[in-house]
Every structure is written in C-alpha cells, then in structure tokens.
C-alpha cells in the first residue's frame, strides 16, 4: 500500500506491506534509527514519536494509519543546530544512562510540557508513566523535565541535587 506523510519536515512516501508498523516504517524505510523498539506491545514507550503533535507509541500504529500525518521523531527535535530544551535538560541533569529509552522519553516529556508548562513532580511522574527506563530510577529524568520546563518558561533552572552541585 502507498503511504505518504511528513516526517521531520520532509515529505516521504513509500509502498509498504499493510502490516508494517509505523515504527518499522520510520526505522527501516526512512532509516531514522533514533526511534527504538523495546517491547512491540506498547508498554515500554521507547518508540514514542509525535503524530500531528500528539505523543504516540509507534509500535501500536500501522504506517498506513499515519497516511497524511505530520510526524516528528527524535531526529527532528533539535532545530538549526540548537537542542530542544528537553534534550538540553536530559544532558544537563543526567536524565539518561544507556540512552535506549531516551528518545521516547524525550518525546513524551516534550509533549507533557506542551500541555502543562509548569508541571509538579507528581504531574511529571504521571506524564511519563508510559515510558519505562531501567537505568535512572527516573529521579534525574524528573529533574531534566523540571530543567526544561524552567528554560521554556524563561526561568533559571533549579540547581542539580547531586553531592557537590555543579
């Protein structure tokens, strides 16, 4: 089947098997391997991308269902060489270790901050509940999202809380 969509600002189209999942279309057809497959059952969230501005687990959606949609993947988050504030937050607050869940986590966190520009700790935790991380214990992911929220609101981010500070 023929599908066409806009991915990271680029118009793409391809002939795919009807059973092709969006995540496989992104990874294999478009060779955008920043979107990861962790479980193929919608639990881990490593494959989260934005479809028409909403966070979607791309292993739960067929490529043909995204026909005509606007898709953003992790590769489309930085613009003009400048990191998205959520990417910057993850770097500055050690919000990642192995990095495998990170693209999906960043996509979910960015969507959360679009909806709620100043989430509480509890709102952050529930906002990323659909994304599993096995490395960080989420502590520094929460801090990374707080950092990004502050940056997006034009405020000074809170200082890091590890021993010795910066």
């Amino acid at each position: 089947m023929q599908v066409s969509m806009t991915v990271n600002g680029r118009d793409v189209s391809a002939d795919v098997e009807p059973r092709t999942l969006l995540v496989h279309f992104i990874r294999e057809e478009l060779r955008l391997t920043g979107t990861h497959v962790g479980c193929e059952t919608g639990y881990c969230g490593a494959c989260t991308v934005h479809v028409d501005g909403k966070p979607i687990k791309s292993c739960t959606m067929l490529a043909v269902q995204a026909d005509g949609a606007t898709v953003t993947t992790i590769e489309g988050m930085a613009s003009n060489g400048e990191l998205h504030p959520v990417q910057e937050g993850f770097w500055e607050r050690h919000g990642l270790q192995c990095g495998f869940c990170t693209p999906g986590m960043i996509m979910s966190a960015a969507a959360l901050l679009e909806e709620n520009e100043n989430p509480s700790e509890d709102e952050i935790r529930h906002g990323i509940e659909g994304n599993l991380c096995r490395c960080t214990g989420y502590h520094n992911i929460v801090r990374a999202v707080e950092y990004a929220g502050a940056k997006m609101r034009g405020e000074e981010p809170p200082a890091p809380d590890w021993e010795g500070g910066d």
């Binding site: 391997t33 920043g34 979107t35 993850f90 770097w91 050690h94 990095g99």
Partner: peptide
C-alpha cells in the same frame, strides 16, 4: 577528578544518533 562533568555520550543519545546493534543493517 570529583567534578560532575556532563557526559560525552549524551549529545548522540539525546538526538537519536547513537548506533545500537539493531540500528546496523
């Protein structure tokens, strides 16, 4: 030593350009 130097690994991993085994075909 003893400084919280930000990770050299992260720019690739936060932008989707880290290469894991399944990314290699």
């Amino acid at each position: 030593l003893g400084g919280s130097v930000r990770r050299r690994e992260d720019p690739a991993l936060i932008q989707g350009s880290g290469l894991y085994t399944d990314d290699y075909t």
